[in-house]
Design a protein around this nucleic acid. Sequence first.
RNA 1: GGAGAGGUGGCAGAGUGGCUGAAUGCACCGGUUUGCUAAACCGGCAUACGCUUUCAUAGGCGUAUCGAGGGUUCGAAUCCCUCCCUCUCCGCCA
Length: 443
Amino acid sequence: MIDIKIIRQDPQRFKQAAEHKRMSCDIDTLCSLDDRRRTLQQELDQLKHEQNETGGQIALYRNPKSKFYQQALDQGQTAETLTAQSQILVDQMADLKEKAKGLEDEFREVNEQFEALLLTVAQPADPEVPLGKDDTENVEVRRVGDLPKSDFEMVDHVALMTRLGMLDVERGVKLAGTRNYVLRGDGVLLHQAVLRLALDLMVQRGFVPMGVPVLVRDEMMVGTGYYPGGEEQAYRCERDQMSLVGTAEVPLTAMHGEEILSEEELPKKYVACSTCFRREAGAAGKDTYGLYRIHLFDKVEQVIVCRNDEELSKHHHAEIVQNAEDVLARLELPYRVVNVCTGDLGQGQVQKFDIETWMPSRNGYGETHSASRFYEYQARRLKLRYRDGQKKIRFCHTLNNTVIASPRILIALMENHQTADGRIRVPEALRAYLGGREYLGGQ
RNA sequence: GGAGAGGUGGCAGAGUGGCUGAAUGCACCGGUUUGCUAAACCGGCAUACGCUUUCAUAGGCGUAUCGAGGGUUCGAAUCCCUCCCUCUCCGCCA
């Protein structure tokens, strides 16, 4: 969410931001609603003030405990005469209330519209973000690692894993429909090994490991920017007004919502491994094969909550990208980092770097990581604040990135590390998590 | 799921209709005193929004907020209703 005061100062900037992100937002209507809202509030405050004053005076005449009341009695007034005098004020009060009623209704309505619209204002992208309409215009930042070269016919992950008894797509679909799967045997062990490797690395780097709810109140979805707008992508439990999260970013970021942290405890660095649920609505027919686009997966996610300082945010952004790259290095996988263009940015994101890992079966790089920084966009929605050195209350900045998401990463892992004899070479760093095995399959 | 208890400021804890944005204590910040530390004493100390003074820091005024929403009343932390949450006991259960 953007501060309305900043929008008011430079509406043009936000119109353009929405345009670049290919989103629609009626800034003009928002501003006129804001004007109306403020006028109404002033009038209402004034009326309320008069009511409070009048109420206070009535209290003098009607409250036997007040000094005024006692003095009046001493001066020969009776309870009856005092009550009679107060009646004039009570009548005045009725007038005031009558006037306020209409204003209140209008205020409520205007304010509701205003708040709903404010939630849809896009955060302007960083100047470093390339202009572009969609993911085809993302800009490659760097490529790391050599692509595998083989003198044999490479097989895709589904064939490999099925043959090795690691994956059963058919039964996954029988159980839960398309985009579902059953992992088995080494598939499960490898999946867990990769997650654990990622988690351990993050803990080593000072991130606090967390176990968080994956079914959360809708306000957390709103607070992190997924709602309104993303309802179709989430499994929502209407009965309970709760949603299954598509990423642990949601609970990790929202965890300190409504709080005022102290500056010394920042930055908060969290890592959580959680199950992620995605409906993939609107993706029908896209990436239907294999483990690429599935409804349920596990992901180790990193979240940083830091001071309200753009340079600092950028610094942490680089840090969380590096963390992910280091995981891929340990898995000995070739990847590239892309600077995501404006048209492919989310509403609240200032900048996003995707990491795409080489997937031989796609003959290309496939997105495996996504690192975003939000500045105070999420924090403002979540009321996630801290007290700075001057004791001023400020909104935090938030950032997040994937550390590893599996089974998607298994596509790259299986395919890149397959051998001529149909086995899978286990990268050095992963062996400790697989009982020291150097290969999966064979024997 | 059944029965009961309860939700007040950073924390503890008063407050059952007006003088209560809220006693008191602790914590915290500033000051005085003091070889140092501690103690003692004095002062300050919620959040949000709007208006306003100012170059700005920082003020001033107003409104709202005692879990949330609605109601009764001239007036609600206080009375009534609904919901949410926490705790205790019982039942069930990974």
